[in-house]
Amino acid sequence: MSAVYSVDVSITAPVNDTEVTARVADAIRNLFPEADPVHREGELVAEVHTMEGFSEELHRAEILDTARSIFFDSLSGDTFVFDLKKQAAFEGRVNFAVGDPSELGDVHVEVTVREPDAESYVDYVAPPTEDGQPLDPE
């Protein structure tokens, strides 16, 4: 892809007393391999500047349409947000959390697109599909 994207991806996940911090960190890194989570006041936080690994998982799991819907539903200006189930993330799978948060809390992701624009970045991370296949095979 020839476009250059400038994005800030903030990731937070609560760490409960009953959880092993390293396992929650692994859950984050499984979907965002570039992340280096830091423990702060009962949660792990990380910031990355790419969603390449996450996008690959969306493609592999064939849930691009679901992802696009969630991203565009939350889009406000240059930012979109979504939550992920921690257990699925620990297993390396994307499972969007909708409705009430799970008992142990969810992984919260906030994406701010600096360049070129949020809509183009969503198209890059989760391209539109036809018959379940990305229109742009890149």
Rank of each mutant, 00 (worst) to 15 (best):
D117H: 13
R114Q: 14
A61P: 01
E62D: 15
T129M: 08
T112P: 02
Q133A: 07
Y124E: 10
R40D: 11
G42R: 09
G42E: 13
P137N: 04
R93Y: 15
V125A: 03
H59D: 07
R29N: 09
V20A: 12
P101W: 02
R29S: 10
V15D: 10
V111D: 06
S69R: 14
V122I: 15
D100W: 05
Y124H: 09
P127E: 06
P37R: 01
E119Y: 02
E56S: 09
D78H: 09
E138H: 13
G99S: 02
D36S: 14
A67Y: 08
M1Q: 07
E115G: 02
D106H: 01
E41L: 09
D106S: 00
V122E: 07
F96T: 01
A35D: 02
G77P: 09
N30L: 13
D17T: 08
S76Q: 11
A88C: 04
P33E: 05
G77K: 08
V7I: 13
G77M: 00
D117E: 15
P134S: 01
E47Y: 04
I11H: 06
A46Y: 01
E19G: 05
T66F: 08
P116C: 01
L58E: 05
R114Y: 13
H59L: 13
D100V: 15
I11F: 04
D117Q: 10
H49N: 15
E62A: 14
K86F: 00
G53Q: 05
S76C: 01
L58V: 01
A61Q: 15
K86I: 00
V111A: 02
V109N: 07
V48Y: 00
P128Y: 07
N30T: 04
E119T: 12
E56D: 14
E130I: 11
E62S: 14
G53D: 12
S55Y: 04
D26A: 11
A3E: 14
L44G: 02
G42C: 06
D100T: 13
V109L: 04
E91H: 08
T21C: 08
V48E: 00
A97V: 02
T21R: 15
D36G: 09
E47D: 09
L58R: 04
G99K: 00
S6N: 12
I11R: 12
S2L: 07
T50V: 08
I11E: 03
R93H: 14
R68E: 11
D136A: 08
G53H: 10
K85Y: 04
I70K: 14
K85P: 00
T112I: 02
A89F: 11
E103R: 14
R114G: 05
E115K: 06
Y5A: 00
M1T: 11
E119Q: 10
V15C: 10
R93I: 04
T18P: 00
P134G: 00
H39M: 06
F90H: 12
S74W: 00
V9T: 01
V7P: 06
E43A: 15
F32P: 12
V122K: 14
S102D: 13
V109M: 07
L31D: 13
R23A: 08
D65S: 10
E138W: 10
V45F: 03
